[in-house]
Amino acid sequence: MTIGARPPSAISAAAKPVFWYGIPHGYAKLDLNPPRERIEKLAGELNMLPAEQRAQASQVLQFYAGVIRALNAQNVHMCAVGYHPDDDGTIVTSTLTISTVSTSGHNAKLVIAGLAGTAADHPNCGMRPLKLPCGLGYLVEEKKRTVAPGRDPDSPEGPLRGDVWQGTVAATGSGTPDIILVQMVTPALHLADVYRDILLGVAHTLTFTDPTQPAPELGEPSMNSAEAAMRNDFG
């Protein structure tokens, strides 16, 4: 499935996307701009639940709202959660996001080229350059310890923490002055190689050419061209 993304300043749903990308199998998109009617309907259904269930559902709804606010504040265009079976029969999860970062007046292509050059000159810095169909980019991957959802961070026991693998591809193109970040995060450290391949697969679908538009028609070659000569020779 190919999806188009609009610039952060475009508040109209009719605004034309400036880049497009594909979402792999097994990922479900979050609605980053849920209509007010849907929220009101959820709130109404929540109020009809028994007191204990209402409290639990309210926490989930508040968590969802907080996630949406945080994603929108960071210019995230798409967020999808992946659910895939592991070899032991359990389900592993991952989060795929696509966002844009302003270069604050600098040329985004030059920024990407400079960082990709740094990655090529210093292969041990955790970065490596990429040649994508849309142009030059680079990959950064790291393992980090982070706060996990599931417990109130203000509780006496403190927040839950866990290790995750995080991979990020940065690229840009003529359709936008911003840098585009394609990021994958998963707690399944043993599947880092698999999720790296998924991340790179998504990055390779990134395009600044509208895939829904028909391919341009090739014009008739001039009579002096090599193509015209071949047509004459072979009928």
Results as ranks from 00 to 15, higher is better:
47 N>V: 07
217 E>W: 01
48 M>V: 02
220 E>P: 10
124 N>C: 07
16 K>W: 05
185 V>Y: 01
38 R>W: 09
175 G>W: 05
148 A>R: 13
17 P>E: 03
62 Q>K: 06
112 I>G: 00
219 G>N: 10
162 G>W: 09
141 E>N: 01
154 D>Q: 13
214 P>G: 12
218 L>V: 15
12 S>I: 03
169 V>R: 12
132 L>C: 08
34 P>D: 10
85 P>L: 00
118 T>F: 15
153 P>T: 10
80 A>S: 03
45 E>I: 06
43 A>G: 06
97 T>Y: 10
18 V>Q: 01
46 L>N: 07
192 A>N: 12
10 A>Y: 00
127 M>A: 03
57 A>K: 11
142 E>C: 08
190 H>I: 04
228 A>E: 06
132 L>H: 05
103 T>W: 02
171 A>F: 00
204 H>P: 06
102 S>T: 15
189 L>W: 04
152 D>R: 09
82 G>E: 02
208 F>R: 07
207 T>H: 08
191 L>C: 11
61 L>M: 15
201 G>T: 09
168 T>Q: 08
179 I>N: 06
23 I>N: 01
188 A>T: 10
44 G>I: 04
167 G>R: 00
172 T>G: 01
90 T>G: 12
75 N>P: 09
82 G>Y: 02
139 L>N: 06
203 A>K: 09
211 P>H: 12
198 I>A: 00
13 A>C: 04
19 F>M: 05
87 D>R: 14
225 S>G: 04
38 R>Y: 04
123 P>I: 06
220 E>M: 13
132 L>W: 03
223 M>I: 00
11 I>H: 05
144 K>C: 12
152 D>N: 13
22 G>Q: 14
26 G>F: 11
152 D>E: 11
26 G>S: 02
78 M>S: 15
67 V>P: 02
112 I>H: 01
68 I>V: 15
226 A>F: 15
185 V>M: 10
1 M>F: 06
171 A>M: 12
105 G>N: 09
123 P>L: 05
90 T>F: 09
94 S>Y: 14
172 T>P: 01
132 L>P: 08
10 A>K: 05
52 E>P: 02
107 N>D: 14
68 I>T: 02
63 F>W: 10
31 D>H: 00
181 L>Y: 11
214 P>S: 08
95 T>C: 14
217 E>D: 00
180 I>M: 08
193 D>E: 13
99 S>T: 11
185 V>I: 14
132 L>K: 05
194 V>P: 03
106 H>R: 13
6 R>L: 09
